[in-house]
Amino acid sequence: MNLFRLAGDMSHLFSIVLILLKIYTSKSCAGLSMKTQELYTLVFVTRYLDLFYSYVSLYNTVMKLIFLASSFGILWYMRYHKQVKQTYDREQDTFRHYILVVPCAVLALIVNNELSVTEVLWTFSIYLEAVAILPQLVLLQRTKNVDNLTGQYIFFLGAYRALYILNWIYRYWTEPKYRQYLVWAAGLVQTGLYADFFYYYLKSWQAGEKLRLP
């Protein structure tokens, strides 16, 4: 475990804490895409099936359980909490899951390291994670009103990916056997999706204003 990886994981964790904090304190999920949250939950469920058959470290196990529990927690709030569910932008959050899920599933069946159920599901989760933010970005563009916490949530989610890239570069040089072309490609795509958002986020931040998208 290197510092980039740890910082990346913490950034990921922090983004989830932010979103829970936003929902819990404001009793509102306005501006949040339930589609994206559902996709992330699917990502965690398909990737962390390995909790049942492989053990890496206590750190990994605990983090996986936190990610699983928190993503189901967010979904529960958005769907069932009496006040929170009324603030959900149902009409604006229209992105269809299958537009992302089906191509990712097909790609995982074709491009993978091993044609086994668990490996294909794991690969599917890698591909899906890369694009799962899209419904959220579309919702942002549409509603244009981005509150601070939602902006920070996406910022830290993007930072997590950028830090993971540094982690991969570090591991590439320090671990000769560590070669994860498929994960790297997906990670680059994922980070690229945030580029536009980062640009506007930093611009608004520099100007000392609230984030505004064009």
Partner: peptide, 10 residues
């Protein structure tokens, strides 16, 4: 086993 080395990430 090497192909699974990425599985130690989250």
């Amino acid at each position: 086993e090497e192909s699974r080395s990425g599985h130690d990430e989250l």
